[in-house]
């Protein structure tokens, strides 16, 4: 069953076409990665799908609702963890989680239950009372993703979730993301080939706003005629093989 379907999605900024007639279908429970070099249109696609910016043309159906006509309904289904660690720095981890519980209208009991559940899932129990601004980059990312999951979203958007993290923090976060697979549809953007290969069910490769290739890691390697995924990516992007 499709959770996301984009139809000729376009985003233009004056002379620049950031996303160009994107057609994409993502299945329920799938972990789908958008891969591409800088300026490929990954973040813009995520921004349109999460109703942060309106498409110039085309439309997308997210969880059964149109992003152009039913943004409010879409917002109730999604969770977003932006590229930057978007947290309230002077608030503790617990207060950040409480903030998002309050915004989503949770009762006191549900808030306590949710915090317990997410702090367990993201191993945040020991830092619940610490101010987020004083945490390491890896912990901040975990808090950021935990905040995105508070609303019990059906669809989770992760924009470069491991950007700037060290190897250990990155692998820890991968484990957490893997644990979410199946229950939530995850759309992830990344620059890291190994991240996309390790986590994704399917990968879409973008360049200059266009979708160049789409498939599983094995399908993309086969398409590029390479045994190495990074080499396959470079080949697809350079040759623009579709």
């Amino acid at each position: 069953m499709q959770t996301i379907k984009t139809t000729n999605l376009v985003k233009r900024y004056k002379d620049l076409t950031a996303v160009n007639k994107l057609c994409l279908e993502i299945e329920q429970g799938e972990l789908f990665s958008l891969l591409g070099v800088n300026g490929a249109g990954k973040t813009t696609t995520l921004k349109m799908l999460s109703c942060l910016t309106k498409p110039t043309d085309g439309d997308a159906i997210v969880g059964g609702f149109s992003i152009t006509k039913e943004a409010e309904q879409v917002k109730r289904l999604i969770g977003v963890s932006p590229q930057e660690t978007a947290v309230a720095p002077n608030l503790t981890v617990k207060e950040n989680l409480e903030l998002f519980c309050g915004i989503h209208g949770f009762t006191k009991e549900k808030t306590q239950m949710k915090i317990k559940e997410l702090s367990g899932l993201f191993s945040l129990d020991d830092v619940l009372q610490r101010k987020v601004g004083r945490l390491s980059g890896g912990l901040k990312r975990r808090v950021s993703i935990a905040m995105a999951l508070i609303s019990e979203p059906k669809i989770l958007f992760l924009d470069e979730p491991t950007l700037g993290l060290d190897v250990i923090a990155r692998h820890d976060l991968w484990d957490t993301i893997r644990s979410l697979k199946g229950s939530v549809t995850i759309i992830l953007t990344t620059h890291y080939m190994e991240e996309a290969a390790a986590l994704s069910d399917r990968i879409g490769i973008m360049k200059h706003g266009r979708l160049l290739a789409l498939g599983t890691v094995e399908e993309l390697k086969k398409k590029a005629g390479s045994d190495d995924f990074e080499a396959a990516f470079v080949s697809i992007v350079k040759e623009e093989t579709v």
Binding site: S50, C51, L52, E72, K75, R76, I78, G79, V80, S81, P82, Q83, E84, T85, A86, V87, A88, P89, F100, I103, H104, G105, M147, A148, S151
Partner: peptide, 13 residues
Amino acid sequence: ETALLQRLYTTPL
């Protein structure tokens, strides 16, 4: 600047 506001725009606020 920290994109917190952008993130909050995706909530029912």
